[in-house]
Nucleic acid binder design. Structure first.
Lengths: 160, 160
DNA sequence: TTGAAGTGCATGCAAACGCATAAACCTTGG
DNA sequence: CCAAGGTTTATGCGTTTGCATGCACTTCAA
């Protein structure tokens, strides 16, 4: 029986591998009508927000440094997909929202990409596994709860 | 009951969120003794190979364009962590291997990082969930098998 | 009320990336 | 044996990223 530390590291490696493999696959398929995956990530996140969003809030959802995100938004604004205006309640702040064009583009790309996702995961996992994956993903993104019973054991293998 | 397409997209979003959240956490913790996570990915992959490896092989495991990988290896070679020499069997090719210093560095960083991984996943998932995650990850990275029973249904929500 | 510390976003700059393509080498059909 | 085409890695070049820092504004304590 593998120790819990080893178990966790194997799971992490499998997660990384799956992530990379699927990203490759999605990148290859022809969704992404001239929006990069990172840009789509931002468009998608904005599409889930009913009201304008601060850039710091966006930054919590998008894996990108704050300056990089700031400039990515720049480009989206310049291309007319995102609207950025000053926050009346906080002079430093900024409120971001999709323009109509932005919302339309997100839907277009999202529809195609959604089919890719459904095919890629749907053809590899059962419905129960899909539910397990979702549940596990949510737990991993959430706060650490159970007190780590990680026995402080020697692990020979260094992890990914 | 959610349709399978919706199920798959929710699972994918959870996977992405977990990935981003954990990467953030790992980046924050002080493993990474002057090697970036991408560099560590390469060092780790090389450490798993008994014999020298072609750069194309590396490229299958590391999520990075081939030119970017080529130059990343450049830097590692320059820093004395990786050894690159011509493949005697194929004049175009190249064989990569860790130097002793490289192997040592991988172990150092790997040990610290491994503890982070064990803590992060171990404190959020049960042993059974860890095993489920590993199994699911492996399936996702593998080839599509079961014939996609994705009903061609309308999905309202556009996916991440 | 006011000055000091804190927060939110943008900018300068060097490093790293992806795309297109070159360069060197293999392979295969004729 | 050779030319045509495929593979493997490297390089040119414009774009994007991260780090450090700046600027503007807010908050809070005295």
């Amino acid at each position: 029986m593998r120790g819990r530390a080893r178990l966790a590291n194997d799971a992490w490696e499998a997660l990384l591998t799956a992530h990379a493999s699927l990203l490759r696959q999605f990148a290859a398929e022809g969704s992404w009508q001239d929006v990069s995956m990172r840009e789509y990530d931002v468009l998608y996140t904005l599409s889930k927000c009913d009201e304008p969003v601060r850039i710091g809030e966006l930054h919590r959802h998008v894996l990108l440094s704050q300056p990089a995100l700031s400039r990515l938004v720049d480009r989206l604004v310049e291309r007319g997909l995102v609207e950025r205006d000053a926050d009346p309640a906080d002079g430093r702040g900024v409120r971001l929202a999709l323009t109509e064009a932005g919302r339309a583009r997100q839907r277009e790309v999202g529809r195609r990409h959604g089919l890719s996702v459904a095919r890629a995961l749907g053809s590899r996992l059962s419905s129960e596994e899909l539910r397990q994956l979702e549940a596990i993903g949510l737990k991993l993104a959430g706060p650490a709860t159970s007190d780590d019973p990680t026995t402080t054991d020697r692990n020979e293998e260094t992890p990914r």
